[in-house]
Simulated scan of single mutants.
Amino acid sequence: MSTTLVLQDRTCTRGSGARYLRAEWTKLRTAPETWWLVLGIVVATVAVSVIVAVNMPCTTAVCGGDPTKAVLTGVQLGQAVVAILAVLAVGGEYGTGMIHATLAAMPRRTGVLAAKAVVVTAVTVPAAVTAVAVSALVGRSVLPAGASTATVLRATGGSVLYLLLIGLLALGVAALVRNAAAAIGVVLALLFLFPILAAAAPDPDWERHLLQIGPMTAGLAVQATTGLDKLPIGPWHGLGVLAVWAFGALLAGGAALAVRDA
């Protein structure tokens, strides 16, 4: 008898998981702003990257600075659009009051947030891959070859992961704050506060530490292909810092969603 109940519970859990995913995918897919924001991720990232690449001072064979990182500059604008898309996946429901219907139909609140994270990932990753790939291809056609193929792949692949983690960070913050405008403000503050404080720090050690723990400054280290020994933090370690921020935000948002009244 107990074995039957356990099997039934597992079957319901699997079924409810698929139901949660279908529901969240339907909501995100049918929201009118979703596909405009997906397009915005690509356009914003590529446009800034092209402008930087075209205006970068280069000779026939040599570029000053880090050409690969330069052609990925657009990621810094694209991340804002990614954050808005992820925030609206949660904040939009609180703004319209639809969250009450969502939680009534799908009572497992952590399951709701997990499903939102999956569908945001499913939308963000293709847009990020397209934006980063086009930026890199345009940059390589404009600028002379510099870094090795493996290093360029690390920078471009890391940029895709960076945008995904920014989306998950924004999703967690939105679940915690529950207001779309406030959540976007919090995410942008987290991204840009640390470089501002680092620039104002009187002590070089403090500047380095602030750059090491900031989600944007640490995460974007993955784009560097030159002067790695001079970076405040290594490329993959920096992306790991951003991952800690993102999953910490998701845990906090999930806990708040589970205990607070809708």
Rank of each mutant, 00 (worst) to 15 (best):
V6Q: 13
V186S: 04
M98D: 13
T156L: 09
A128Y: 06
A221H: 09
A105T: 12
V42R: 09
L228A: 10
I84T: 08
A224Q: 04
T225P: 07
W236G: 03
A145C: 00
V119K: 01
R10P: 00
L7A: 15
A23M: 12
A182C: 08
A101G: 15
A122C: 13
G95C: 10
A155H: 04
T3F: 13
L7M: 13
L251E: 01
L191H: 02
V186A: 03
T11C: 11
R260K: 09
K230E: 15
A86P: 08
G219K: 12
S148E: 12
V87S: 03
I213F: 10
R29L: 15
C12F: 15
Q79N: 00
A150W: 12
S159D: 07
R260A: 11
P204F: 04
Q8A: 15
M1H: 14
A131R: 00
A80R: 00
L88E: 07
L77V: 15
L231C: 07
L188I: 15
A189K: 11
P126G: 01
V48N: 04
V177K: 01
R140Y: 08
V244I: 14
E33F: 10
L239Y: 05
G172N: 07
V82I: 14
M98P: 02
K27M: 13
L5K: 11
L103P: 12
G15C: 08
W236L: 14
G64P: 00
V42T: 10
V112K: 03
R260M: 11
